[in-house]
């Protein structure tokens, strides 16, 4: 049961981070925490021998690839908008959207 508690705690931290942060990077880390908590469950609660561990390898390799892509995107976004604050970026996009509509 220890692992269930650990993954629950990780899930809790991740959700807390998602709720309180608007920095894209922190949001990303929170999401990774949640995903890792899920992977932990996969491994520890696997019923047939070896399958959970096999999934762990699969999950980690895809996770790493996804992280690479997301981090690259984050760099582009923060360079383009000069900030990595979700609220500000959404605000900018919305301002841009309304101004485009006005032109049409």
């Amino acid at each position: 049961m220890d692992f269930v508690i650990l993954s629950l705690v990780m899930l809790g931290i991740g959700v807390y981070g998602l709720l309180t942060n608007r920095q894209l990077l922190k949001v990303f880390i929170s999401i990774e925490l949640i995903a890792t908590a899920a992977t932990l469950n996969f491994v520890m609660l696997a019923t047939s021998q070896g399958l959970g561990q096999a999934f762990l390898i699969l999950a980690f390799s895809t996770d790493t690839a996804v992280s690479g892509v997301i981090l690259a995107l984050l760099v582009i976004v923060s360079k383009k908008y000069g900030t990595s604050d979700m609220g500000k970026i959404i605000q900018m996009l919305q301002d841009k959207g309304t101004s485009e509509d006005e032109v049409q």
């Binding site: 608007r22 925490l33 890792t36 900030t83 604050d85 609220g87």
Partner: peptide, 29 residues
């Protein structure tokens, strides 16, 4: 109503966070 401006410059905290994530990954693995 406006949230965070990064005072310490993005690069340093960026690296710290990634390092933390990687260490966490490795530990759990």
């Amino acid at each position: 109503g406006q949230a965070t401006t990064l005072k310490r410059g993005p690069s340093s905290s960026f690296r710290n966070y990634v390092a933390a994530a990687v260490v966490g990954f490795i530990l759990i693995a």
